[in-house]
Design a protein around this nucleic acid. Structure first.
Lengths: 144, 144
DNA sequence: CATCAACGTCGCACTACACAACTAGATCTA
DNA sequence: TAGATCTAGTTGTGTAGTGCGACGTTGATG
């Protein structure tokens, strides 16, 4: 069991080390779109629009937090709200053309940075690493 | 190249997904010791004491941030400062017995949560995952 | 119709963080 | 050795992200 615990310990430490830096790094790379904003905007783009409540549920954020993030994105002209005709309480959120454009730029430059960071990894290792991360995060969603 | 880019994309998304949740999760699990405090205290424990400047350099934090975190840990009685007799500017930071005790508790419960999350992983996968994370974070440190 | 639930916003408080100005101690140089 | 310079750490200030609770609006249910 000793070895297993060592691995678990390392994963814990390295994941938290990553977490500590990700936000700062994202902010440095893209002052115009924070990590959270980027993630929410990407989700809207991916889902072809969704509700604030859905975003909150998906990312385990308080609805007030999402509300403010969306308000900021709207002020920047990156997101637009469309009142749902069937339920006037809900707003369906969509990226604007401008928002989609900025998102594409940020995504490209993020991907480039990651590509450089992972340049000396071979295909198989990359693939396995990606799979492990997905598996890990799926487990986290299940266990909280 | 398509497959390689897919993996890179997945790693990017999953790592940021993790980053988004880690802090909140840590705060929920251990109100008495934030993710940052925990990390700094763990480092002190691991290193048998070190300077604030070392912590800042190691974790890419501003010295003011570390200064305040350490001040908070000292207020809680988890850390003590020992003026370096050779250089009166520097304070060597050490966990107190109480701090070491709390750290041990938090570490144990964090490890337990991780262990549950990773319960259905076999030894080899755990080991490889841990290695990938270390390699990835080392690369991040080099490339910013 | 009355009540309850859901959606979103706002006020408030708190934490984490960076930058810059500052104090105090150490080191280098002329 | 006096003054400039460098280093360690603190403090003031400002910003961003977040949760909680209260609220107004709207839909659903008895």
């Amino acid at each position: 069991m000793a070895h297993r615990d060592d691995s678990v310990e390392t994963i814990q430490l390295e994941m938290t080390a990553f977490a500590r830096r990700a936000r700062a790094s994202a902010a440095r790379m893209h002052p115009e779109l924070s990590l959270v904003s980027y993630t929410l905007l990407a989700h809207l783009d991916d889902q072809q629009g969704c509700r604030a409540t859905d975003l909150a549920a998906h990312y385990l954020l308080d609805k007030s937090t999402v509300s403010r993030q969306i308000a900021a994105l709207e002020n920047l002209g990156f997101v637009e709200r469309r009142i749902d005709p069937d339920d006037h309480r809900v707003q369906v959120l969509h990226p604007t053309d401008k928002g989609a454009q900025v998102l594409a730029n940020v995504t490209a430059s993020r991907r480039q940075a990651f590509r450089e960071r992972l340049a000396d990894w071979n295909e198989d290792d990359l693939d396995r690493f990606a799979t492990y991360l997905q598996r890990y995060n799926a487990a986290q969603e299940r266990h909280g």
